[in-house]
Design a protein around this nucleic acid. Structure first.
Lengths: 194, 194, 194, 194
DNA sequence: AATGAATGAGGGTTCATTCAT
DNA sequence: TATGAATGAACCCTCATTCAT
């Protein structure tokens, strides 16, 4: 198992730090290696190439990110609360990890098409969580039954992602966590007065 | 005036085509020049450097994109219809220009931080249009008066952007325009049953 | 005749100014053209190529420089006075023309081998003046008759050139003209005590 | 230590050869690398950039050149003999190294202002040797005590440099070493008959 | 397993020169 | 004569990857 090798994790952690501090294009393999305390060549004993390092960063970090959301939402009984928890956990985790937020929202987006395909694969698990909450909400008659699930999923994910990106680009000046109720309320009630 | 110079436009059009077909990192200056039917050096008579070409592509294309949305929404009387028109025009224009959709949704996002800052400046006009519709809707008592405008704006933009990006990444297999009423409905009514 | 064309001289004068202010490598044809108030292409109506401009600058300016020295030394009766006058005129003329001194001592030396060959041709007239003074001095029994003329010529030219170059590189902080008697004295008497 | 790295010296030697044979402007990094038997990128493991290679060539070669002169003159007892030895060593060393003479006398002078500043710094050691000989000569009452040392230093250096440059530009057709006594004699006795 | 010196392909940009007007 | 827009060849440097030790 990859993850049990200590150097593997050293490299992943170093990569997050280096990318957050130097940007995607300022993160040479040699810089990551140095930050990880290994030789350049050692990177290639644990990763196929540089792209594999970046994908792995995303997989490891987003895997944990999604796992936390899964576990937290599972503890809630109804879809409404689950949605609230998902939003809360999404904002909370990225608020808590300064480096990670920069890396996922800004830097890894500069990767090429192929890398983004792989990133999307990782995100599928997140989208599945969302889909399940939506289905459950409809069954529980908390959500409208005429909703197109993929569309709603895109709305929710697009919104959360946009909000976090804006927050990161504004140098994280305000408290993201305070937005949770308003965002949840917006999803639930929409714009209309009645 | 920049725009009246035919070579300027030739280069812009060539850049869109080359970037759409070769990806951001596969779009060398020489490739763009060849596609535009000019010499490499000619690029530098019209643009400061390669980045300036890319910024200009975005400015010209998104400028027109936003102008169309502004004009169309201005012809509508109430905020509800304006929002509908905005969504419709957003999807319509990107549906209609295969290359442009790829470039704006996928390729230009791979640009570095500085370029993305400039891209965001161009998008401000779009966000202003959105903000004005929202303010108008609240005044007209069509939208709830407890809405946080920046948040709603982020929701709408994030959603539309995510939907278009998904459509492009799915190789534009389905008809984006058919989604307009559902998206509009989603924004208006939210998820709740009542 | 080249010299009667006003544009020819405009370009020469512009070249001296531009090279003095921007250095050899910062003096593009377009910059010289602009300073001369002509179009880039016009340069090529009066000069074969850029190198020809630079050679012509040297020819024109050094031609006048040497002519002044020839005329002044011719008015002196003996070789000793002629040598004194040559040194005086050499320093005087370069002291008086700030731009010219920079161009001849520093910038044109950065030219390539071929250009320097042509520069040396221009300097031959100067060296001939020197040789004649030396021959005359020997005939007049003012100078030792065992002198090797080419060697002495190289000593005198090398010395004057080195002194002026040092003065230019020290940003012309001291008065070059005050050095004339000491330099002349040095040439005449050498280092020995007796 | 730089000098113990074999590649460092390979590159220096290759640079001298390439510059001597192709001229300053014909000496691309790739050409130097090829001549040194290393990859282009290897140059940048040992030198900051191309200019650093050229400065280092001058530092290494002139450093050795000056060291030889220092050691040889130190073995002589009086200033007169030291001056003779300095001239002799100056001519001897450049006579002995065909490539080096071309590089120092012709090609490196085509470098830009910044590089020439650094070259001048290297030469300061040579000028100090000269100054010390002059001071010693005055103390020993072998040289006139009314000499202005900087001026005499400029005369001697300017003369030697001009003589060697002429010899190189004449394709080294005559024996430079035979000139030593005459040059020394000229410095000592000057031009005057008495 | 680990090292790190060495590799070498690849591209944005400048600028002397040309030529249609 | 004069223009100046257009040309396109030329080059330094970076950095992901390899491989002998």
């Amino acid at each position: 198992m990859k993850n049990n090798k200590p150097k593997y994790n050293q490299i992943i952690e170093a990569a997050v730090k280096v990318i957050a501090e130097n940007g995607y294009h300022g993160s040479q393999v040699s810089k990551i290696a140095k930050a990880a305390g290994v030789a350049d060549g050692t990177i290639y004993l644990y990763f196929k190439n540089k792209e594999d390092v970046l994908v792995s960063v995303f997989e490891e970090k987003m895997g944990e990110f999604i796992k936390q959301i899964e576990e937290s939402t599972n503890q809630k009984q109804n879809a409404n609360e689950k949605l609230f928890t998902l939003i809360k956990m999404h904002f909370e985790q990225l608020s808590a990890d300064y480096h990670l937020a920069i890396v996922t929202q800004l830097e890894l987006r500069q990767s090429n098409y192929d890398l983004r395909i792989q990133i999307n694969n990782v995100l599928k698990r997140y989208l599945t969580v969302l889909d399940n909450i939506l289905k459950e909400g409809i069954q529980q008659q908390l959500f409208r039954d005429d909703l197109t699930i993929p569309l709603v999923r895109q709305m929710i994910f697009g919104t959360l992602d946009e909000i976090v990106t804006n927050w990161v680009m504004n140098e994280q000046k305000y408290d993201l966590n305070k937005q949770v109720p308003a965002v949840h309320d917006l999803f639930m009630k929409g714009l209309s007065v009645d």
